[in-house]
Design a protein around this nucleic acid. Structure first.
Lengths: 250, 250
DNA sequence: TCTAGGTGGCGAACGCCGTTCGTGTCAAGA
DNA sequence: TCTTGACACGAACGGCGTTCGCCACCTAGA
């Protein structure tokens, strides 16, 4: 890989080249590379997509870019900064509609469905959410703004809008992270049934039915994993609650 | 601290004792300590209470117990196991009532309020929740069983009970973790206003009002932090949604 | 009482992590 | 051409969870 430069390895008259003495070794034989923050985020997201969140270390990203981890710090202030950027990059795929008071509930659901879909499409990306407290990327901000606008168009009081957007995002983040754990387990090549649902299955099956009749009696329902059903159920709960706070429309 | 044992340091005739040669140094001068899993969990919880979750490392726990981190592994299989135990220890404080169909909503709320209170009482304990996928401690299991029993007593279908307990626990976990981040920031001795709410304040204040009129117009509501208000709001949403699924009672 | 096996305590070290420091390179501007 | 600031990058720091190998201790059985 490393090719000695000419000044560091003067031409030998003939025969085998003598090894370059240590004090004459070039620090860097290959031209230094040039990076951008975008390239770093792209590499990080690619690693998450192909290897999962646990593989996304500064070293692994640097390796992907053909350099060392220190090079990343010229562009991101640290791991946390990088996570903000990665999440925000993913969420640029979320498009929000202008508010329509007649169908505000469906609009909220649509936005949150899209958020979840984006998170899920990147494997276990959602597992990064708890590592940052308060997402501050542009995409997240735009999405929050849109949700607030929709809630406000429904006539909800300001405080209800504010608390509502918080509850909604907590729920979506939570379920996305839950699903991310499940997705990771499945992708890691574990035996079929070793997914989180499989573990819950076995856990519940091992419970003493006399002591835990509800859990054991609802094992199938508790571990049911059919499409978006679980997500939609929770969304319905929240939206029903919010609708109860909105003015009645004729 | 280390006191040479008598066999390793034979009595000198007089004067200053000669240093013990390396090959005669006792491996352990003090009697070996005896630990229990309970003591380890107690030490871990004490560290969380006094220094926060970030300080709870295997090394720090071992230090608290006067030993090295390797000693912990005879009693816990690893950090994840320890976290399960710590969370479960904390949640032993949760007491659940027998179901009363006439006041099932208040019962659910009471249980979840208690869960949250327990989590909050241990500083930023809730930040540990995302590190484990599916809590399997006894306390958690007992609590889930009780919530299911209450929901079932309200006449909710099995699937609604199952999805409902999931949504409720996701919400409580989410908001507890959110509050834990806030609590940690405040406890870390940062300047007043450096709490998460303070950061959100400044973040929202820095947004361009023409582009983000909803966020900037609701800054006060979004950052409002008054007792249990925010938590109760989300709980009300979920319970309203669940009540809509329950049979109507005379 | 003695012996053997199992359990557990513990030091040293491993491999990995995020990050910093110091040095060298490069490009733009004077 | 020279200077300066930004950036690339190797080496190393300090920290983490964990394992390995050794030794001590305890208990059960002969």
């Amino acid at each position: 890989m490393a090719q000695p430069s000419e000044q560091a390895a003067p031409a030998e008259p003939s025969g085998q080249a003598a090894p370059v003495p240590p004090w004459e070794r070039p620090r860097r034989a290959a031209p230094r590379r040039v990076f951008t923050r975008e390239a770093i985020v792209t590499a990080a997201l690619h690693i998450i997509d192909t290897e999962g969140v646990d593989a996304m270390t500064m070293r692994r990203i640097a390796q992907e870019l053909g350099t060392g981890p220190a090079s990343l710090y010229a562009h991101v202030s640290g791991r946390e900064d990088l996570i903000h950027l990665v999440l925000d990059r993913a969420l640029t795929e979320v498009r929000c509609p202008p508010p329509d008071p007649q169908r505000w509930q469906e609009q909220i659901k649509d936005v949150l469905r899209l958020v979840r879909r984006v998170l899920v499409s990147h494997g276990d990306l959602a597992r990064l959410l708890p590592e940052i407290g308060f997402p501050t990327g542009e995409s997240v901000t735009v999405t929050s703004e849109a949700i607030l606008a929709i809630l406000a168009s429904a006539g909800l009081p300001k405080q209800a809008c504010a608390y509502g957007v918080d509850a909604l995002s907590l729920y979506v983040s939570g379920i996305a992270a839950e699903e991310a754990v499940r997705a990771r387990s499945a992708d890691a090549g574990r035996p079929a049934g070793e997914a989180l649902a499989g573990r819950a299955d076995r856990y519940i099956a091992a419970l003493p039915p006399d002591r835990f009749p509800m859990l054991t009696g609802m094992a199938a329902e508790l571990t049911r994993d059919v499409g978006d059903e679980r997500f939609e159920f929770g969304l319905d709960l929240l939206l029903t609650g919010l609708a109860a706070l909105a003015p009645v429309r004729a």
